[in-house]
Amino acid sequence: MNFFNTDSFNTHIVVRTGMKSFLLLDRIVEISESRIVGIRSYAGDPVYLGLESLAQLGAFFIRSLTDFSKHVFLLKIARCVFSTGPVLSGEYTFSGDLVSRSDSAFQVRLHSEKDRRKVIEGDLLFGSVEYNDYFKQETLHHHYRKVFSCLLNDSKTVC
């Protein structure tokens, strides 16, 4: 398998996920200091991608809470329950509530549901650090703000 688009290791790496985009959220429909709600439509995708959607929604929630001033990452999946089959199809609503926090760590209780039935739920812990040489502010701050804005405005063209 060739992961590289040229012979040089100094060029960028192409990761073939088989997906159109690694952004697994279609839009964000509600956000406040304590809660976020998003939507994602799947077409026979594996159920673990639902957990990735939950994590992405939670991370956007924390970025928004910290005004995109820090790099946010998933620290731990403290609890996760799947109440569905191996495949996700149709439109799912994802929501997250802030359970507790410190200056730099945040626990968010997230779940996804379809037809008012919970299909995935879990407690995810997120960390945040100052931007640095590895997580460059000039790249990440702009990128995540743009994607967040696009999800809020349901603008698929920019994402």
Binding site: L75, S100, S102, A105, L125
Partner: peptide
Amino acid sequence: IDLLELAVAINSCFKIKVKDEEI
């Protein structure tokens, strides 16, 4: 990582604001 998780747990249990660098 454990300390970050501890900070969140302390916030939840004792209902106080937790500044990681201070605690």
